[in-house]
């Protein structure tokens, strides 16, 4: 077989491996009150999931949950970060911030509960639906907080159903 043909075959193998690439991880840094960049992290995450060929319904759930989490960091805290790891089985997102924390987690999780100031409501947020939306879209969700130090939100969306 001519050398050129071998090379072509190698290329095909590499392409297939790339196509099968089903893991990725990374981090986005979020800045409080930076409303002009609000949504950029979730948008990039969505693009990564699309590139990996993940099911549209799952991408939609992930994007909605990530955006709600991103908005909360931007609205309520000075800074935070969103880490993601994608495996063939699930997508895991951990959002950590250095904000004021949440005193009463159960209350914060209640539909309609919000401490958003007026100008946030004028932007279309502050209906107290963000955290319940995240819970609804995720397969697992964990919210923990140390008042005065910050909040950590972790959620998992299964990519493959058992």
């Amino acid at each position: 077989m001519p050398v050129a043909d071998y090379m072509r075959r190698d290329c095909e193998v590499v392409l297939m491996q790339n196509k099968c690439e089903k893991t990725a991880e990374g981090v986005f840094f979020l800045t409080g009150k930076d409303f002009s960049n609000a949504g950029v992290a979730s948008s990039e995450l969505k693009a990564i999931l699309e590139k990996m060929g993940i099911n549209h319904g799952i991408i939609r759930r992930a994007a909605i949950a990530a955006f709600e989490a991103e908005m909360n960091v931007i609205i309520y805290t000075p800074a935070g970060m969103m880490r993601y790891s994608i495996t063939p089985d699930y997508l895991k997102i951990v959002v950590e911030d250095m904000g004021p924390g949440i005193e009463d987690i159960a209350l914060a999780m209640t539909e309609g509960y919000s401490t958003a100031p007026h100008y946030i409501r004028e932007m279309g947020f502050g209906s107290g639906m963000g955290l319940p939306n995240i819970k609804k879209n995720a397969d697992e969700m964990k919210l923990s907080s140390t008042p005065g130090a910050g909040t950590t939100l972790e959620f998992i969306i299964k990519i493959k159903r058992e």
Binding site: G39, S42, A66, F67
Partner: peptide, 13 residues
């Protein structure tokens, strides 16, 4: 509402 978050919301939903 006409801010950029509306477009983001549309993008994700």
């Amino acid at each position: 509402l006409t801010n950029a978050q509306v477009i983001r919301t549309a993008e994700f939903a």
